[in-house]
Design a binder for these strands. Structure first.
Length: 936
RNA sequence: GCCCCCGUAGCCCAACAGGCAGAGGCAGCCCCCUUAAAAGGGGUUGAGUGCCGGUUCGAAUCCGGUCGGGGGCACCA
């Protein structure tokens, strides 16, 4: 330790260099990216790049080494392009509203603003050490009133819009009012617009607004004291946050009409450069299916069903309504028909009693029960319906395998082609008619494959696609139904009953009509309250009601305003927005963070985010050039943000209709955790491996693999890594672990490899004992030049394709070559190029070496080396010679050799000639630049 | 149950578009430096690509099957 050379690149020296360069960059605003107009205006090159990390939430727990993986990845990309002359926008702000912040504040007994701002400071301190080239003028935070002013403004834009299906886009609500006024569009009850009261008009408009109040059933979570959106409910019917039971409850809540955009949200995925996996998840979530709605007569009523298989209509042998379906009580027979099947009655004396009992039982089942137990249950309503295609009379059941929330809440059951219907039919003794001939050898139950229609009258012989078309035509012609499209996507529940979120810019008049707060009065600031902790309940108690903390802010809820007809008293909306709101548009604010007239100046928006068809193709939607984050936001954030962008686009506020042109999902850094026999976790850093088993001291412990987390005692922090090795070593190691999109285990012991490399590179340029630059001037030998230019070319390509692991490997290779062949000093041109190539990944050491090599200017804006093609072509080529696919020999020929020349060189090679002997090769394959294969 | 992704040295990972299985790192081994040590230097060993079959002159790569791991959806008509 003591006699370590004075000028070795140690962790301590790295730390000193890093602090110095970070200060240098900050002082000079090295990473300030100019805008075309406004407060950040400056000279802008046409060539720009907007790189963005997914909005981090500033957790109180601080960062572990997994968090910065993507941040470093985007930084390398940004630095690479900045060095190559592009105007690069890269920054980072904070998504700081939301439940976790509020819960953390409640735990620590402090105001959420205080804890959140403290956490942001901690977060910034941690990421600052990493040397990320952020434009710090563009840091924003969703909790800043100057930010959420515009979140509220966008909310009002959406509120004041409606979706015009005839033109397929959102329009200002005033244009709808004009249609009603002129009579171009009739009001729902046919009265003239002028005859409607103010409240009536608002009620009509509420049915069209893209944000509207709804009394529909919503997801109520007593354990959280708030309602949540469908996207936040897990598959087993619990809240994603907190894992509490979720209950369906009718509550008056704000909804966003995202369903108006279902088709565009699906269709526009094709124009995005996104991972297929994420696109598939969004398609799946939106759940578009094509089919038909068919009406079945039932007594004096008509039951409408949705089906994706109208071609199987002849096989419909019964119908099922969801237990909550409104027609159930209307159609239910007063008494069982004679000779009713005992399985159908549920043991009740009348259909009415059976239905009541069944509904009671169904309501007691949780979603989880329903999923675990897929045995089919149901009761007969006593009613029969008529199959429109053949006049058959079929019984109508209720069963909980039919959901009120999808389609029409009613189905035609075709047991021959649907396994669920098959199961029900078998349990209840109902007939099964196959209407598609199963393929040969099929021995299953319901047959869902393709085949010719059978038992289907005029459809017989047609395949599924033909039969669908034919039957839809028939239904439409005879007025029994029509082809239609169905979606799983539901409107977005947008209100939360929490404190720590954006207040709604809405007040209510005496009649309870919601009124937009005028733009001039934004932001509507979050009031101080004595008790910001929400009222939560017994998580299992469904009979509770949300009680928003803001409703307790007495001086705030009641407000005197003059909204045009004199000063009156209004009540504020006491909900807050979900924490997804702030992240729906933050890229727009990064672009223009200080504009206080607009959320973003159009010139700046167009420059950074506008479509560039000449560069990205005719259908380019625009958006952030590279957006990096985890796959966990595939449906939530990424769907909501696309929706807002499209509304803003329709209203003419932005020039592109997608927010993120290219999306990249980084993998996760995971870690081993160790628990002893009792299941108690031990500090992973203290575990030793001996003969394939693991020990903590003398106690045997057992390895698990997964997340890094405090409770698992396996957290490694970037701070520790910077301390032990320096930020550049840490950055390089993270980038070298593998491709960016692959998840992998953290291994602190491997970090030393990255450090040794940087030490070797440092030593090639700096004398470790004197600290003098030891590069040599003069000509560089040919092999070194060849390797150098090959490295330049390869690293260029690797950086632009986010393959940092292979870029790192190429640099190590070059450095090893220099160490081996130029131990007495690195040739200057090689040293300079090497430093430039390294700079995106290890910017501090690169700046330091660059400056020691005599360059006063920062390396942040280049230069970056380009490969000289002369050194990329070899003058000779070595060909492996395969005989029957096995490599037997090698020949070296001039690179200019023709295929014939290569062939004869190969055949005359000694070992090959011996193998060929007197035989005549059947074939000789020459792959130019690759190899020769002789087939005997 | 349905859909998607991934299996290459002890470990993390390379291999352009089917063409010599290896770029790099960790660990191991040998040597050097050192009073000693290593987060120093130099060198070196190591897998036939999870398994079976097919296509091909040639397969880690393409196709079919199978096993293992990860993820998404799930009574959505």
């Amino acid at each position: 330790m003591s006699d370590e050379p004075a000028h070795r690149y140690t962790a301590a020296m790295a730390g000193e260099i890093e602090r110095r360069w970070q200060d240098h960059w900050t002082e000079r605003g090295t990473f300030h990216a100019p805008n075309p107009v406004g407060k950040l205006a400056g000279p802008v090159p046409e060539d720009k790049l907007f790189v963005q990390d997914m909005f981090p939430y500033p957790s109180g727990a601080g960062l572990h080494v997994g968090h910065p993986l993507g941040f470093i990845g985007t930084d390398v990309y940004a630095r690479y392009h900045r060095m190559n002359g592009r105007n690069v926008l890269h920054t980072m702000g904070f998504d700081a509203f939301g439940l976790p912040a509020e819960q953390y504040a409640v735990q620590t007994g402090q105001h959420p603003r205080k804890t959140t701002e403290d956490n942001i400071e901690t977060y910034l301190r941690q990421i600052r050490r990493l040397g990320l080239g952020h434009d710090d003028r563009r840091r924003i935070s969703t909790i800043d009133p100057e930010y959420y002013r515009w979140t509220q403004w966008i909310f009002l834009q959406i509120f004041n819009s409606w979706y015009d299906d005839t033109v397929g886009r959102a329009r200002p609500i005033a244009e709808l009012v004009a249609q009603f006024e002129s009579g171009e569009r009739a009001t729902p009850d046919g009265r003239a617009w002028a005859e409607l009261s103010h409240a009536d008009r608002q009620a009509v408009l509420n049915e069209h607004r893209l944000v509207y109040l709804s009394d529909a059933p919503v997801n109520w979570v007593p354990g959280l004291g708030t309602v949540i959106s469908n996207e936040e409910v897990t598959a087993d019917g619990r809240s994603e946050r907190g894992n509490f039971p979720v209950f369906r409850k009718n509550l008056r809540q704000w909804m966003m009409r995202i369903t108006a955009y279902s088709d565009r949200l699906i269709d526009d995925l094709e124009r995005l450069d996104w991972p297929e996996k994420v696109k598939a998840m969004q398609r799946n979530w939106i759940g578009r299916s094509h089919g038909a709605r068919v009406r079945f007569a039932c007594g004096g009523e008509s039951i409408e069903v949705f089906t994706t298989r109208p071609d199987t209509l002849f096989g419909a042998t019964y119908m099922v309504l969801a237990p909550e379906h409104p027609l159930v009580d209307v159609i239910a027979a007063p008494a069982w028909p004679s000779e009713v099947d005992g399985r159908w009655t549920g043991g009740a004396d009348t259909p009415g009693e059976a239905i009541a009992a069944y509904r009671r039982a169904a309501s007691m089942k949780s979603d989880l029960d329903r999923q675990e137990n897929k045995d089919k249950t149901g009761v007969f309503t006593g009613a029969y319906a008529v199959n429109p295609v053949n006049g058959a009379s079929i019984p109508v059941f209720i069963a909980d395998y039919v959901l009120m929330g999808y389609g029409t809440g009613a189905i035609m059951a075709v047991p021959g082609q649907d396994q669920r219907d098959w199961d029900f039919a078998t349990a209840f003794g109902l007939p099964i008619i196959r209407t598609v001939a199963p393929s040969e050898g099929f021995d299953g139950e319901a047959y869902t494959g393709d085949g010719p229609a059978i038992n289907s009258g005029f459809l017989d012989g047609m395949d599924i696609a033909e039969a669908k078309k034919a039957v839809i035509g028939w239904l439409e012609e005879h007025g029994h139904g029509r082809g239609t499209v169905q979606y799983k996507l539901r409107d977005w529940l947008f209100s939360r009953q929490r404190y720590w979120g954006e207040p709604f810019p809405i007040v209510y008049d005496e009649a309870g009509t919601p009124i937009a707060v005028p733009e001039s009065m934004l932001p509507v600031e979050l009031p101080e309250v004595d008790d910001y902790s929400p009222t939560t309940y017994d998580p299992e108690d469904a009979d509770t009601e949300p009680s928003p903390p803001l409703s307790k802010a007495n001086g705030w809820v009641e407000v005197e305003l003059d909204l045009g007809d004199g000063v009156r008293t209004y009540r504020r909306d006491t909900n807050t927005m979900p924490n997804w709101a702030g992240s729906c548009w933050y890229q727009l604010r990064y672009v223009d963070p200080a504009d206080d007239e607009r959320f973003c100046a159009p010139e700046n928006e167009r420059y950074w985010l506008g479509p560039r068809p000449e560069q990205h193709g005719a259908t380019d939607p625009g958006g952030v050039d590279l957006y990096v984050g985890g796959v966990e936001h595939a449906v939530l954030h990424l769907l909501y943000a696309r929706f807002w962008q499209k509304v803003l686009f329709d209203l003419g506020h932005v020039s592109g209709d997608e927010p993120y042109r290219r999306l990249f999902n980084q993998g996760y850094i995971q870690a081993y955790a160790y628990a002893d026999a009792r299941g108690v976790y031990v500090n992973a850093a203290e575990v030793e491996e001996r003969e394939g088993r693991f020990f903590h001291g003398d106690t045997e412990v057992f390895q698990e693999y997964g997340k890094m987390g405090k409770s698992l005692k396996n957290v490694v922090t970037p701070d520790e890594m910077c301390e032990l090795y320096g930020a550049d070593t840490f950055r390089l190691y993270e980038m070298s672990m593998g491709p960016m999109d692959v998840s992998r285990p953290w291994a602190t012991k491997d970090v030393v490899g990255a450090q040794r490399f940087l030490q070797r590179l440092w030593r090639a340029i700096i004398d470790e004992t004197t600290g003098e630059v030891r590069v040599v001037d003069g000509d560089v030998d040919e092999p070194t030049l060849r390797l150098l230019h090959k490295t330049i070319a390869g690293v260029h390509e690797d950086y632009s394709n986010l393959r940092y692991n292979t870029a790192g490997a190429k640099l190590i290779e070059l450095t090893n070559h220099i160490t081996k062949h130029h131990g007495d000093g690195c040739p200057r041109p090689v040293a300079e190029a090497m430093v430039q190539l390294l700079a995106p990944m290890c910017p501090h050491i690169a700046e330091e070496l660059w400056s020691r090599l005599g360059h006063p200017e920062s390396l942040a804006h280049g230069p970056f080396p380009t490969a000289d093609p002369r050194y990329l072509v070899e003058d000779t080529a070595e060909y492996p010679i395969q005989v029957n696919g096995k490599v037997r020999a090698r020949v070296t020929v001039p690179a200019s050799a023709t295929q014939e020349e290569i062939k004869s060189a190969a055949l005359s090679e000694e070992k090959v000639a011996a193998l060929v002997a007197d035989k005549t090769p059947k074939k000789v394959i020459v792959v130019p630049g690759r190899l020769v294969n002789v087939v005997l």
